[in-house]
């Protein structure tokens, strides 16, 4: 291993034996454009146990977002297998994949991806809109509760364009929380927040992980935050280095 490992593994008593929620085997992702071929991920092997809080670090362009997309079933690897709950993703139908994304996974995107034509509340309700058996009232209650957690109760009727970058990021986090997912994939969730707000969000994620047993995979550039998580995975040029 060429880079010094600074990962600090702090396993919970049963983390090592916990069943894997996610298993990546020999994942390769190659972006093919007309002129060049970019290897975004190179033979990545990774197992994440139920209830773990993992942070991913690495320089810009090393493939962190690409990895999260593949874990979040938004993209397919060029080769290798992704297993969710012990079942290879390739075996799922389009409908089943959609259901997995909807019920199991909450995604916080690096660039938020809010729908500008929808109010904050409507944006946060979105994952519940695609879930059968959730009525309008319940949807709204759960969305409001999620917005309360990120401190945006006063902005529910605003539109994304009327919010600051940090506020948008918190809306994106609230949206990921609203669906009550087992697995949260957060791509630099505190990248646009001041340190106080960043700490609050970090505490929120830690609470979710510890009290509700939510598995979290978080990309971060903040060494301090990474140290608070159970495991740090480091990437360099598409390869896992620790």
């Amino acid at each position: 291993m060429s880079l010094a490992s600074v990962s600090q593994v702090r396993p919970l008593p049963d983390a090592a034996t916990a069943p894997a929620i996610l298993k990546l085997t020999d994942i390769e992702k190659i972006y093919q454009t007309k002129t060049i071929e970019t290897v975004a991920l190179n033979r990545v092997n990774l197992t994440i146990g139920k209830g773990e809080f993992v942070s991913i670090m690495g320089p810009s362009g090393c493939g962190k977002s690409t990895l999260l997309s593949i874990i979040g079933l938004l993209d397919e690897p060029t080769s290798g297998t992704v297993e969710i709950d012990g079942r290879p993703v390739a075996a799922y139908s389009d409908r089943e994949l959609a259901a997995l994304r909807n019920q199991k996974i909450g995604f916080v995107f690096q660039s938020y991806h809010l729908i500008n034509d929808l109010s904050v509340l409507d944006n946060v309700e979105l994952p519940l809109l695609y879930r059968s058996g959730v009525g309008g009232k319940e949807r709204q209650q759960r969305a409001l509760a999620a917005l309360d957690k990120v401190g945006l109760s006063a902005r529910t009727n605003h539109f994304p364009s009327q919010l600051s970058g940090g506020q948008r990021q918190r809306v994106a986090i609230a949206r990921a929380l609203a669906g009550g997912p087992e697995l949260i994939l957060a791509d630099e969730p505190t990248g646009n927040l001041d340190s106080v707000m960043g700490e609050e969000i970090m505490d929120l994620l830690l609470t979710l992980n510890r009290e509700d047993g939510v598995t979290i995979v978080m990309v971060t550039h903040d060494e301090h935050q990474a140290q608070k998580t159970e495991r740090v995975i480091r990437f360099f040029d598409g390869s896992q280095v620790s």
Partner: peptide, 8 residues
């Protein structure tokens, strides 16, 4: 985004 949120 809608597909990421669970739309088919």
């Amino acid at each position: 985004l809608r597909r990421a949120m669970g739309a088919t």
